[in-house]
Design a protein around this nucleic acid. Structure first.
Lengths: 190, 190
DNA sequence: GGTATTTCTTAATCTTGATTCATTTTTCGG
DNA sequence: CCGAAAAATGAATCAAGATTAAGAAATACC
């Protein structure tokens, strides 16, 4: 039985019917209401989440006790705390739905088993991981080459649809500035 | 014949003698003098570099015409412009040796072939890529949760040996502030 | 449909780190 | 070992964005 997930995987590697069966057996599809936590700080992260519908955010609480968002995941993106996943240590992050969402999850343990049975998945995850890394590097490049205002305008022009989906204060957090500053910028552009 | 590279790979996956042979055939080991460019902006990046000895930096020229370093690679780290590597488009980055170094390089094309012959390497690169991504995410977390001064002190305490190896202005660039500001911080701490 | 909670906006003041420019110290090639 | 270039320091002024403190506008909930 095909799923959003196996569909996505097949954009990168071929899967047999048997592979799809095996994958189907170890993943869990969940409908999750807005503002539900999939991971909370101090818990060990044991799963990877694939968004088939909706939007997740990854954030931590900084020293000033504000939420600092470091990632969003929308349709066809994975989200997890790989640090906690690998080390087995408690996470310092929260993963929460921003909208009512549909999430496909797989435990780290099951995924390891799955790699033995469907080695092609190593390739899929290598490619996905590489893209994530490239995106993350690009983000660091932007942080260091644009002012906050420029970064806001750049992000808005790249993802006009996305910024409609999320509250502005979340975008401000993701871009690393205050909601007040964001209002200021938006007021300018008339 | 074992190399620094196959040694490193074997920390993550098992290799047969035949695998090691195959890998040895497609990589090139080079001794590279300090300040040599392995990649320059406007060139298409076609290779991945593994540092067996020495240190590389990845940087671009920002709007103010300053060098902005986004990554260092020391022993046992890979460096490349994955963006350019994947897209085939010219890079906007420079990769340069910071010290006299020994670099093992493999072309993207050869690596693709190698994945067919030694599928276990997919796993190795998946793991390596995942670590790189985690490190990159961690870096973004630090950028958004510490002031420049805090980040400098944090970095210094984490990598006291490394900061001895590189000029201070390179560290300032990597941390995203000016050499003048770095002097100021260092002068404080007496 | 009205109240409570979230989200967004405005404005004054304050801080961190940039900029500019000059000087000193270190490193390196010949 | 010397001169030139590279790297580090210092101090004065400046700017981007934070902070604080209201209030206004949306949204959600009962």
């Amino acid at each position: 039985m095909q799923s959003y997930l196996t569909n996505h995987i097949e954009k990168f590697v071929e899967l047999s019917e048997a592979d799809i069966e095996l994958i189907g057996k170890v993943v869990t599809v969940k409908s999750v209401k807005k503002k539900t936590f999939l991971l909370q700080a101090d818990q060990v992260c044991r799963e990877l989440y694939f968004v088939s519908k909706g939007c997740l955010r990854l954030y931590f609480i900084n020293k000033k006790l504000n939420e600092q968002i470091t990632q969003f995941a929308i349709e066809n993106w994975w989200m997890s705390d790989h640090g906690s996943l690998e080390s087995g240590k408690p996470s310092s992050y929260y993963i929460q739905t921003v909208e009512d969402s549909e999430v496909i999850s797989i435990s780290k343990a099951k995924l390891e088993e799955l790699f033995e049975k469907v080695p092609r998945l190593e390739r899929y995850f290598r490619i996905v991981q590489q893209r994530a890394f490239t995106a993350s590097q690009k983000r660091i490049e932007y942080i260091y080459s644009m002012s906050d205002e420029e970064r806001y305008r750049h992000f808005s022009s790249l993802f006009p649809d996305f910024i409609q989906r999320i509250p502005q204060y979340m975008l401000a957090s993701y871009l690393g500035f205050t909601p007040q500053f964001m209002s200021k910028i938006r007021a300018k552009k008339v």
